[in-house]
Design a binder for these strands. Structure first.
Lengths: 326, 326
DNA sequence: CCGGCGCATTGAAACGTTATGAGAGATTGG
DNA sequence: CCAATCTCTCATAACGTTTCAATGCGCCGG
């Protein structure tokens, strides 16, 4: 290509990168040749030479899940500002997470953003983090010495508690998602801390994290007789949907008879009738801030110790909650 | 790294690629050294040398949109089978599409999968397709000489028509999405072809493609008096949601009084009460088959002419449709 | 008129891999 | 026992950039 413009390849490089001054006429000649030939620099060669690929890898459990779509979008927004590209790897299964991370590493990414499950062995993560900058987005780890961006799950639980208590509820049924998930454990911990006091009653049903299972579990419970609770708190929106369906089917009105609160604020939450009161997960922010942290590390911030960013969450109060019946 | 194993770098290459036979003991030694050092091959160097990056680029308008999340997932599934990675570029705006495509090209992708808007100028696409294999997924183009994988929109419209006609409906209100979109035009064309006959009445309201706008437009219409139609066909699910909300608010029951049909089968469709009858878009298949076509092209299928794959769509009959009131 | 200086450009080395011709032993057939 | 063959390994040239020392050239001050 260089020859087409009548200059040396080094000069072309200077035109492209501006590392050395180039005479305006020369610049013009080079640019003309470039556009004439439809030339684009070979990224692989640049990467090889510079040792940086300008690509960051993002590992998510499932890119088809809207939540992770948001995370990916946030990460991309941040990356774009620094002219980086994002390779998204959708793991599928947890076991696959490690493989995907490794694959990305061999692809020569400059850094890794991990938004996967907390269940992945910390050893594998640590091993990889030794070789390439890594940041956790949405996941969390006590032991891993890695920057982390997470939502304030406890706060979310606490806000739900405050809202329900403020409306006058004292008896709440909790539907807990995936058992063993630290995330939902933190949410519940926050809830209990803020809600439990003399004269209140809270009980938890565990293990239901999709619409159908939650619907059937609650329906079974309702079949036993008049419920003791005036509100249901589901640790994710899908379970809340199931709960509303079960309650309606059993003849209870939401929110007049029983209030329902969800968690996540997935797209559907605001479209339901009644629109769902729920905690807004800052998914896009999680991705964006995670990527920014990662980029800071890549750009050589070895100074600061482990950074742990905790994002505040908000409660979107909609139509599915109301004061309890007297 | 090679030295650590006591062999030449060429031998390491042979161990990795199996291009030449290597003595078992040598293989063992190399592998031992590799794992001891945590060595991974430098992808950039491989790409530079081989001239193939093992990466395909996917351009979508918005990765946070669940539909495109599905497309991305399908593409990844296909890519993984051939040990390719996918870089997902989320354009944001149509104007950005071309820029993203260019960016990906300079990243040295082996091929491009374009799932973007049909509105992007065909010239820019053609220009890029001249340099790197490209396939259209979900988009379509009459003039562009490029492989294409699309859903059979006409068929979808026709299936809706057949379903409603079969139930006995003869008067249908259509809510048309984004005006000027070829996609919704094809859907409507299919609908009319199959539905229109003596004694039927179909009218179209245009320009509403989100929940709120559809809800308000329909509410305004209902306020005028008893509706002349017994069914509403929305060319996407979000408008269908809005329609159901407007109908309920106005005191009409779905489906007893008025039936509603959507299009797309987004996640929410099955969670609504009543669950929405809608056309299932094979989003994941679109991504998967598009990627497969692209990979075939990359692997050197220059033989066949332009391939155009049209995927059948299905109607998911749920609870939002019923025979009209007599 | 000449030495020195600054500017624009060049040439060559290096990045880590793959492909390939050639070499070193070991094995076989005559 | 030697030549031919086979098996494995090595050394080296690319791939397309960036980097940097070196070069050429015009211009200034002395």
């Amino acid at each position: 290509m260089a020859e087409a413009a009548g200059v040396s390849i080094g000069t072309v490089s200077n035109v492209l990168n501006g590392n050395r001054p180039v005479r305006p006429e020369t610049v013009a000649a080079v640019e003309k040749a470039m556009s004439r030939l439809g030339y684009v620099p070979n990224h692989a060669a640049t990467t090889l030479r510079k040792g940086r690929s300008q690509i960051i890898g993002l590992v998510v459990p499932d890119i088809a899940n809207p939540y992770f779509g948001e995370v990916a979008k946030g990460a991309q927004e941040a990356a774009e500002l620094h002219s980086l590209s994002v390779i998204v790897a959708s793991a599928g299964t947890t076991a696959n997470d490690a493989r995907q991370l490794l694959l990305l590493r061999s692809r020569g990414v400059d850094g890794l953003l991990y938004a996967g499950s907390e269940a992945l062995g910390e050893n594998s993560l640590a091993e990889i983090a030794r070789h390439v900058p890594m940041v956790l987005s949405g996941a969390d780890s006590e032991n891993l010495k890695v920057d982390t961006v997470v939502a304030h799950d406890q706060q979310g639980g606490a806000k739900v508690a405050a809202h329900l208590a403020g409306l006058g509820h004292r008896n709440v049924l909790v539907l807990e998602g995936k058992v063993g998930s630290w995330t939902s454990a933190r949410r519940l911990h926050g809830f209990h801390q803020a809600f439990d006091k003399a004269g209140t009653r809270v009980e938890t049903m565990r293990g239901y994290f999709l619409v159908e299972a939650a619907r059937e579990a609650l329906a079974a419970d309702l079949a036993k007789g008049k419920p003791w609770y005036t509100a249901v708190f589901a640790t994710n929106d899908l379970m809340a949907v199931g709960a509303i369906q079960a309650l309606s089917a059993a003849g209870y009105r939401v929110p007049e008879d029983i209030s329902v609160v969800g968690y996540d604020d997935v797209l559907i939450a605001s479209m339901l009738r009644p629109a769902l009161t729920t905690v807004v997960q800052p998914a896009r922010q999680l991705g964006k801030l995670g990527a920014e942290r990662l980029i800071a590390r890549i750009k050589g911030d070895r100074a600061s110790g482990r950074v742990r960013l905790v994002l505040d969450v908000d409660l979107a109060v909609r139509a599915s909650t109301a004061p309890p019946r007297r």
